[in-house]
Simulated scan of single mutants.
Amino acid sequence: MVNKEASAKAVAWTVEALFFALTIALALLAGALIMAAAGVSPWQAYQLIWQGAAGSAGSIKETLVKATPLLFTGLSYSFAYRCGLFNIGAEGQLYLGAMTGAMAALLLPPLPMLVHLPLALLCGFIGGALWGGIVGALKVGRGASEIINTIMLNYAAIYLISYVVTSPLKEAGGSLPQSAALPASAILPQLFGSRLHYGFFLAIATAIVLYWLLNRTTWGYEIRSAGLNRRAAEVMGFPVKRNMLLVMMVSGGLAGLGGYVEIAGIQHRLMQNFSPGFGYDGIAVALLGGAHPIGNIGSALLFGGMRSGANAMQRVTGASTSLVYVIQAIMIMMMLCNRYWLGGYKKALVARLTRGLRKTGAAGANARLNLTE
Rank of each mutant, 00 (worst) to 15 (best):
F278R: 01
L196I: 06
V65G: 02
G290H: 02
R269I: 01
F72C: 01
T321I: 04
T317F: 03
A157M: 00
L29V: 11
E234N: 11
Y340T: 04
L214Q: 06
V326L: 11
A38W: 04
Q272R: 11
G97A: 07
R231S: 15
S275Q: 07
R82G: 04
Q93C: 08
L188S: 10
A319F: 08
G290K: 01
M331C: 15
A8L: 13
D281H: 04
W341F: 13
N149R: 06
T63V: 02
P112E: 12
W13F: 13
V261A: 07
M152T: 05
G361T: 07
Q93H: 03
L270S: 09
W43C: 08
G124E: 11
A12W: 01
F79K: 01
E146D: 12
G143N: 01
R358H: 13
I34Y: 15
F192L: 11
A45D: 01
S308F: 03
A286P: 08
L64G: 07
R368M: 12
E62I: 06
P239S: 06
F125W: 15
L353S: 07
Q267C: 00
L117E: 01
L287G: 00
I266D: 14
V2S: 14
K347C: 03
G298K: 06
L130M: 11
F200H: 07
A80S: 07
A6R: 11
I332N: 09
P168C: 06
F201Y: 13
L117H: 00
S7H: 05
A98Y: 08
V165Q: 06
G279K: 04
A310M: 02
I283M: 10
L22P: 05
Y260K: 05
H268I: 09
T354S: 14
A137K: 01
V15L: 02
M335I: 11
G92W: 02
M35E: 10
S76I: 04
A120C: 13
N338Q: 14
L33M: 15
A284R: 10
A8K: 13
W212H: 10
K359W: 09
L191Q: 03
G132H: 00
M1V: 10
G304M: 13
G92T: 09
A120Q: 03
G220N: 00
P42T: 11
A329G: 15
P189H: 00
G101R: 02
G265H: 08
Y163T: 13
N311P: 07
R242T: 15
V135F: 05
Q328A: 11
A98G: 14
P293T: 13
L29F: 12
L288K: 01
V316R: 00
R358F: 08
K61W: 14
A32H: 04
L108Y: 00
A144F: 05
M103I: 15
A102G: 00
L106F: 05
E171R: 14
W13G: 12
L71T: 06
L121R: 00
A12N: 05
P110Y: 05
A105K: 01
A137D: 02
G58D: 12
Y260H: 03
